[in-house]
Nucleic acid binder design. Structure first.
Lengths: 211, 211, 211, 211
DNA sequence: TATGAATGAGTTTTCATTCAT
DNA sequence: CATGAATGAAAACTCATTCAT
């Protein structure tokens, strides 16, 4: 991602701090409003920066979406080694572990995640952003793909194709943040038990077939 | 919903026609752009109306989101009696039937559904819209709730609480439209088999327990 | 030029009126400030329009430069038939006539002309504008070229090549507006006599040769 | 000019070097962009200075225009003694010599000259800058005025008043840089021959009178 | 009913200038 | 002297909404 930004030096400690400030400020603001309701100025002030200073660390408001994605994926990526270690080489446990890790991050920034996840759809239609996005999401998606592939090879999972299963599994996790909350906003642990149970085949008491 | 709109007469045939035109035009435009990228004028022209004429049938741009929700739920509601009849009183078959019906509508207007589903989140935070929304979604959510309640009463389903399960099930359906398609855009039938299989407990080959 | 603008209909009488209003307002504002000191809002208000209304008749502030050029050339072009008629087929008289006509228009909008003439230099570097500009200036430049060509063919003028002579002659006219006025701002008639005299060879009392 | 700048010491050798660096950098940048498209930072970097360091040698961006004028006039002024010597006391030869010298400088910095010449118009409207400008241009304008005055006194030139003739003659020279190049960009030597010929009365083959 | 010109509030973005280091 | 991060004022442009016709 370094090259998509105007950081004087990608390893610049100041730039890192500022980008973190901006990320956290954006999350706080986006907890209350949509991406288009939130103004750049508002986010800048929330980050203790002057209106124009955002542009020292971001090329455009749109790039803030990349910053959100990047920051969240990084938080997940840092947890991955521990998750793998704890899975005891069982890809089913590894898959659930990654999903749980994703759910944790998503939950941490719930509203901001929902915003980012939606807006990214439009970003991804423009080649210049799509490439950047794929790079950013790579660690997350390839971790899921790895567990799924091994699960199938070992005969422990059954599904049609890897990329679409990656997407379905991601939807299960992001569903947590995407729900409109029109009925109840379930608490995270209940949601987690529910999707884990689905995967473990405990939802239907006996295996009814689809019509 | 009648009262949320300025229809000269809610049953006015012309108003109905115009609102249908607008709904379809909005779906076409929103297939290409986000809610904020799409302008009222653009949608009006797509509906063969002049820019200002939209406001004869809609009080504001935001109310167009209600129109989208209302039109989509109505299409599903019309299919519900047939779905119930075909389920042979088995709530598991009924649940899958409703989900299949929802998926069909969602797929029909895929992009516009994603837009509406996201934006509605912000609408729901304003009391004046929240009430209207609950009314609009009632037929869909109460059909799901009905099947789930009966399923649990008959000991055919196992889950914690109804409203949160309604939401989870809805997420499974809407997931189809919400996926960003960054990896692959799975075709609808594959997606359907995948979520049906989850519900039927065929995903994990043997019942591994969550960590 | 019609196609470079967003006129609903290029012959639209309202659009023509508005564009004329904007042209005159711009000339008034640019009499006092440079192009970059003058704001779109200021010009709009001067034209009795709201700030945003300018954009119903102009795609961008830059396009206002095209409007200036177009309006001025049109005023000159309307005088051309009369000038030709009055020249009695003498290309020298025709050349002086066109130059006098140009000087009249330039003088009428002196400051705005200077602005336009300068800024057009940067516009002309962008292909999309260059083509439009060439089209706009065509009537003026081709009138000059015509008189020069005939003058040379008839042995009444002596110079190296047509396009560069067109430019030199234009510079002589535009010089009137471009002078910075640091010393005196000569009055127009004096300036005219001076350049006419140059052309008529009356400047140097006897024909001294250049070093 | 010394007082218009914040040189720690007007004769400071470092300040002189830096101002020369800035002048040359500005000329390079202004060869590609207009004054308002060129940023202070860009020019500073081109001069191998940090963004803020420009302000150690210039009070404002506008003062850069004075620097441009001053540097160019100085280059011409240094050539004046040689030009006078070569003119053999013939004011016609002297006038052409000064014009040729001006054309040489103008050509050397063509684009930057055009920028400066245009922007200076707005500077000259503010008393604080007008005085500085007159001081800067004095050597150039008074050399022209001198040759013209003597030319008229000796009966070798015929024109109405000195200051306006100075301006007309300057326009002839600056015309070289000001031409928009919409048709052809004549080469300098051709341009020179053309204006020299005008002055020498060789343009019209026989002396037609203006209408 | 229908139109579409007009409005003006609101947003992103740029950049000259300052100043702590 | 030199730096470059930070500032915040300013400006172009968009677009939902209104309303005279």
């Amino acid at each position: 991602m370094a090259e998509a930004l105007r950081l004087p030096n990608p390893d610049d400690a100041l730039a890192k701090t500022r980008r973190r400030q901006i990320f956290l400020a954006a999350c706080r603001v986006l907890a209350r409003k949509s991406f288009h309701q939130a103004t750049v100025k508002e986010i800048a002030l929330e980050a203790n920066l002057a209106a124009g200073s955002i542009y020292l660390y971001l090329r455009s408001k749109e790039e803030m979406l990349l910053l959100l994605a990047e920051s969240m994926v990084t938080e997940l990526a840092e947890a991955l080694p521990g998750i793998r270690a704890a899975s005891g080489a069982d890809p089913r446990r590894e898959l659930l572990g990654i999903m749980r890790g994703a759910l944790d991050v998503i939950d941490r920034y719930r509203e901001a995640f929902a915003v980012m996840n939606h807006e990214v759809r439009y970003l991804a239609r423009r080649p210049k952003y799509r490439a950047a996005l794929e790079l950013i999401l790579e660690p997350y998606f390839s971790a899921l793909a790895g567990a799924l592939k091994r699960g199938r090879e070992l005969g422990l999972m059954r599904f049609e194709n890897v990329p679409s299963m990656v997407e379905a599994v991601h939807m299960l996790c992001s569903g947590w943040a995407m729900g409109t909350g029109l009925l109840v906003k379930t608490d995270r642990e209940t949601y987690w038990r529910e999707i884990a149970a689905l995967l473990e085949g405990r939802f239907f008491v006996d295996g009814a077939k689809s019509p």
